[in-house]
Design a protein around this nucleic acid. Structure first.
Length: 491
RNA sequence: CGGGGUGUAGCGUAGUCCGGUUAUCGCGACAGCUUUGGGAGCUGUAGGCCGCAGGUUCGAAUCCUGCCACCCCGACCA
């Protein structure tokens, strides 16, 4: 079998790069830092969107769409927000092109300069809160629970397909509430939606928790996150949910009259996940032969490969394959018969493995005689012979089992790569020898956090939600600490 | 944005140091025949602004300058 991927062991970053390209998920475009998401990659994104959108609706949210362009003045109203994003904003300054007088091509028409420059949204808090101002007068107008599916742009210096691109697709929820408690509940609720989505659908176990001040979203009072472990032992922030307090309400002067007749600023949240989740999905599960997709995220769940020699056999095998396909579809299983007569079965096997199709059914003349099919699962590479009786039902169960198995494998890996360190030496040893997550005591200061980051490249991924109260001493300063925080090297 | 690396056919590459007819090889593509239960075999064919733009030279993939893109390491970040 021809090897098309660099092995993970040889070069993990190269393996990831190869896989994204070879599996047809995405490729680089003519524009620096911007990728083309190809049909197969976009199909995965659509599956993510469909599930998440359902969960957002289920929790009372509606979709809307706000402008791509944001007046520069809006952006600067929230001080820490502008500070956080200013360095990576693309700016629109003109609105017309013209032919160069010397015929050298097309140039910007300097006479068409915008009075106020516009920035391409890196996130939409400002334009949305400017809008909400007009929508909110009374507590009766609250809460506002809105999500938008959009593209955003952050002018990143260093990009990687899906993990960090200058333009990316995401959803951003923006909610407005009458009380801090309600907004905090919303923040927690949506973090929980993300955690559930990651574990149930992406089959990726996540740690949830609060970010430290230095890792907080620009403009947030508190940022919560889900952190997932990749196979190389590095952590990936897979989703964030922010309690914005009254920061944006104050910046955009959004007040409401309460039941008691008092005027107060509105409380806010925002939360988002992006196409980065596709990168997480790839790096969490896949192997040296290609993608391993959990069935719930697979654009094709079952691929049926017919095998035949003669025309007569082809007809019989196709008939049988079509029948199986129809039975699977009747159970809402996404199945396809690969009828390309330009490729050999072996070629198709390798191709579908590369693309991570969870289950392959091979059917040939031998199977027709025996009333069987060969069933191969992508996650374990196991092959077995199944009787045709109740095949669709058995495949349905198999898909459930695969989904479960992929999650358990990732969970075992994550747990085996989560360790505790009580001294800085042990911390550094674990980080270099094992990678993964390290739970350690921290004195709560930004200085200690920065020192550890400078010396080891590890950052505090979060202060875990479920952290037990535990007396200890900071591994750096020796000062008292009441609970362990989660460290890792991260993407 | 700093340091390092790479750019030759759809993909992977030889050639670059030391300039010299027609740019190497493999995969892939296309055609035909034989094949089809793990990326099939044989024969033949097509496919190149050697990243882009200048320059040096009788002559540039090769030397020089500038630019662009990608990869790795840093700083920054979902």
């Amino acid at each position: 079998m021809g090897k098309v991927l660099t092995s993970r062991k040889e070069n993990y970053a190269q393996w990831y790069q190869d896989l994204v390209l070879k599996a047809g998920l995405a490729e680089n475009s003519a524009v620096r830092g911007c990728m083309v998401i190809k049909p197969y990659g976009y199909a995965i994104w659509e599956k993510m969107q469909a599930v998440l959108d359902g969960m957002f609706k289920e929790t009372g949210h509606s979709n809307a769409c706000f402008p791509l362009l944001i007046p520069k003045s809006f952006f600067s109203k929230e001080a820490s927000h502008v500070e956080g994003f200013a360095k990576e904003c693309a700016v629109v300054t003109h609105y017309r092109l013209k032919n160069a007088p010397d015929g050298s091509g097309i140039i910007v028409d300097e006479t068409a300069k915008l009075e106020e420059e516009l920035i391409i949204r890196p996130t939409s808090e400002t334009i949305i809160w400017n809008t909400y101002k007009g929508w909110i007068q009374s507590y009766r107008d609250l809460p506002i629970l809105i999500n938008q599916w959009a593209n955003v742009m952050r002018w990143e210096m260093r990009t990687r397909l899906f993990l960090r691109t200058a333009e990316f697709l995401w959803q951003e929820g923006h909610t407005a509430h009458a009380t801090a408690e309600e907004a905090m509940e919303e923040t927690a609720r949506m973090l929980n939606v993300y955690a559930t989505f990651a574990e149930k659908y992406l089959a990726i176990p996540v740690y949830t928790g609060a970010k430290t001040a230095s890792e907080r979203f620009a403009g947030a009072v508190e940022t919560y996150c889900i952190e997932a472990l990749m196979q190389d032992g590095k952590s990936l922030q897979a989703g964030t949910s922010h309690f914005l307090g009254q920061n944006f309400a104050k910046a955009f002067d959004v007040k409401f009259t309460g039941k008691d007749g008092r005027l107060d600023y509105v409380w806010a949240t925002s939360w988002g996940v992006s196409t980065r989740l596709i990168g997480a999905l790839v790096m969490a599960h896949s192997d040296d032969d290609g993608l391993i997709l959990p069935p719930l995220m697979a654009p094709v769940q079952v691929i049926i490969v017919p095998i035949y020699k003669t025309d007569e056999q082809q007809k019989q095998v196709y008939d049988a394959a079509d029948k199986i396909c129809a039975e699977l579809k009747a159970k809402k299983i996404i199945a396809q018969v690969d009828k390309r007569d330009t490729q050999t079965p072996g070629w198709k096997f390798a191709e579908h493995e590369l693309k991570g199709v969870p289950v392959r059914i091979a059917i040939g003349p031998r199977d027709l005689e025996n009333q069987t099919v060969e069933v191969a699962r992508r996650d374990t590479k196991e092959k077995s012979i199944y009787q045709l009786t109740d095949l669709a039902l058995k495949i349905e169960h198999l898909l459930d089992h695969i989904q479960d198995n992929i999650y358990k494998k990732a969970l075992n890996f994550r747990d085996s790569k989560t360790a505790s360190a009580d001294t800085y030496d042990e911390f550094k040893r674990l980080l270099d020898d094992e990678g993964g997550f390290i739970l350690a005591h921290w004195d709560g200061t930004a200085e200690t956090e920065a020192k550890i980051k400078d010396e080891t490249k590890a950052t505090i991924r979060c202060i875990p939600d479920n952290a037990r109260h535990e007396e200890g001493k900071c591994i750096i300063s020796g000062k008292p600490s009441h609970r362990r925080v989660l460290f890792a090297r991260a993407y």
